[in-house]
């Protein structure tokens, strides 16, 4: 048991599930399957329920993060400015779906509701860098730049939902 994670919680307290999962993600950067089994046992919830909760909220991820995290804004302004195409292009280029990580663990692709940079829509972020008024043509170049960069410092909390 990861006594570290569980020490702040009472056993069989089903309501602790969300903070517990947040703690797990804080430590591992994602929710590893083995730990979810223990969380299920500790809270007295069925594993399927824990998994259901983990997949319901965008803040939780079930796979480790890649070295670079790409966030595509799908808020209203970006949508109007064609962010669907941006996302589509990224998915095609990376050969993954939103929410997934590439096989080589270089990139994680995520979708967010609004980054708060509507004035430069459509916008994506790669790690802490912003790319505004983005066109699909620019995407391969951006990806190449980050793919070749030495291992970037990535934040581990996962995305905001």
């Amino acid at each position: 048991m990861h006594s570290e994670i569980f020490k702040n919680y009472t056993q069989n307290d089903k309501s602790a599930i969300i903070p517990l999962l947040q703690d797990v993600q804080q430590i591992y950067g994602y929710l590893p399957e083995k730990v979810l089994l223990e969380v299920a046992k500790f809270t007295g919830l069925a594993l399927s329920r824990v998994y259901g909760i983990a997949t319901f909220y965008n803040q939780f991820r079930l796979t480790p993060l890649g070295e670079n995290i790409i966030r595509v804004c799908r808020g209203t302004a970006c949508h109007v400015k064609g962010s669907a195409n941006i996302l589509y292009t990224l998915e095609q280029e990376l050969k993954i779906q939103a929410g997934e990580t590439t096989r080589d663990k270089k990139f994680t692709l995520e979708v967010v509701s609004c980054i708060g940079a509507c004035s430069i829509a459509p916008v994506i972020t790669v790690n802490d860098d912003y790319f505004g008024r983005l066109t699909t043509k620019e995407i391969p170049g951006i990806l190449k730049k980050y793919a070749n960069k030495p291992k970037a410092e990535t934040k581990k909390e996962g995305s905001a939902s």
Partner: peptide
Amino acid sequence: KIGAIDFTNRGFKTIVTTPY
């Protein structure tokens, strides 16, 4: 009280399935 299957994901992607 088995809980082998449950709702996972949400919206259009919602599916009743097993863990993972």
